[in-house]
Design a protein around this nucleic acid. Sequence first.
DNA 1: TCCATTATACTCATATTGAGTATAAATGAG
DNA 2: CTCATTTATACTCAATATGAGTATAATGGA
Lengths: 317, 317
Amino acid sequence: MSYDNAKRASGTAMKTGIQTIHAELIAVLVAVTGSVPRVLTLADGSALPAGPLELTHRSLQAGVRVWVERQTHHPLGYIEQLYTFADPTRGATVSGDQAERSISISYLGLTREIASGGDTVSWQDIYRYFPWEDRRSDPTLIERTIRAEMGRWIGTSAERAARVNACFGLDGSPWNEDLALSRYELLYEMGLVREAARDGQSNGGEFIPGTMMHADHRRILATALSRLRAKIKYRAIVYELMPESFSLLELQRCVEALAGQRLHKSNFRRLLASQNLLEETAHYAPGVGRPAKLFRFRAALLAERAIAGTRLPIARP
Amino acid sequence: MSYDNAKRASGTAMKTGIQTIHAELIAVLVAVTGSVPRVLTLADGSALPAGPLELTHRSLQAGVRVWVERQTHHPLGYIEQLYTFADPTRGATVSGDQAERSISISYLGLTREIASGGDTVSWQDIYRYFPWEDRRSDPTLIERTIRAEMGRWIGTSAERAARVNACFGLDGSPWNEDLALSRYELLYEMGLVREAARDGQSNGGEFIPGTMMHADHRRILATALSRLRAKIKYRAIVYELMPESFSLLELQRCVEALAGQRLHKSNFRRLLASQNLLEETAHYAPGVGRPAKLFRFRAALLAERAIAGTRLPIARP
DNA sequence: TCCATTATACTCATATTGAGTATAAATGAG
DNA sequence: CTCATTTATACTCAATATGAGTATAATGGA
């Protein structure tokens, strides 16, 4: 049973008639501090910040921006729409025989971490929710904790085995960091995350480590992580996550934090050089060892934006 | 003034209070027939098919699928969510002092073209709406028709010049087919598409050739084109657009139709070979000249799905 | 002074791309 | 039946890009 199917199955109040549609904005605010990718959460890390769509908002984007800036007292740089979910079951308050349908529109925003005003608002390590996605120090978590359970789910199905191998980079398939969302959804389908059990999927044994979240917030966070990982490869958006000036190693650590992978130092620098995104400052970062030159992003970058894009074998006239 | 700003400015009925949110699904159905990329439209090509979100739909995806299949009597292969717009102005029926807000959730679907049952339903050449995006035979349309107007908008602003050059591949910048949406939005901002005038943007002179659409359907179509062009480069989705078996040249023509670019024949084939997506059939396509071997997509492809993904300079342990 | 530590510069074999040329297998005109 | 025309495939080769290192340069502290 797929993620969608499971959600459906638990639905009850389906009847045609007068319906109030309730729309909600959900924000995934990401920052990278040191080598830790973090997300802004509510309720002790168990929910993403969300607010109702108000008629005063001129556009969805503007709605999120206003809302987040009020929460964090910090201007929000990059914003991007993630996905819209409309689940008839979730938040279905059947009051007075009138079903309420909820639409959730989620956004990804990039900032730098600052002390948040709110009380229950806190920044959490993203890998708290997806320990298996962080392969920087130990790429074997999956193997050690849950491979046996996955084997049980696979059984003798060649198709299931192929899916698991492609998603988790097992048995010869390469690991692809962009597949974070597919992996979460597959784990849900296998009943190995707690949300699956909560939503009525029975499961025979263990869960994979990782903190559960309210409703499908963890899925939304996985969507954000996937999107962000894919995007850093062809758009210079790390830019929104870095301070004014930084060393090349700091930039590398930031990308590594998001990708969940160690990168090859000199090749990473060669790549940066070829993109012509950075310019030197006159300053050096002190610290242990030889001081590193500090760089900043080229101002012109703001205008260019789009950059390269992948290639097709184009014919010239 | 940006596209969003212009939309906002024309908004009036903004008041907080009881609000009914009306949600609508909009479908961009794409097929490629011969060398023409086509889209399913209503009303003589002036609107995209759209329908209300019904409570009986189990999920948005399912809603679109049901709706489209009822319209076209043909199973829909690939579906992907595009974007959600919530515009307070559009469709704002201020009846009885109650503002109605409309949310549009758009989807991209891929099929093969078949005779559509409906009367006003028809398939239209996508480039009818974006002639400048088709550079297969004549890449100079922009130059010839509208460069002067763009110059007028740019004036002496270096920032505007940089944006135009990056978007349209002028003055040394490379043309990037994925930027179809940015180009449409920029043309709107410049007042060079008719929608801009309709929405209250004054403009001094000419419009760029291209058929106008209802509401912001043309923008949604541009979103679909951008997404599709980006996606064919890293996911094997052309598959949904091709018949059971086909020659390599037919496949090339299909990709060219979507990309709006001619491709280099032998390099395209080398790429295909390296991806291992195809397998030979025993048949040949007759016609003038040497008959071409017919291929089909490998069945295993369905299971693998995700494929490669772009690369980071990864460090090995 | 010399060593641990981090920064930066080079090197080099291999793979991937861009851009063609050469050869093969059909059709139809004369 | 032969040859020009047309399309299909096979190769070639230089220019780049990538993966994986090694070598050398600056620091602060023992």
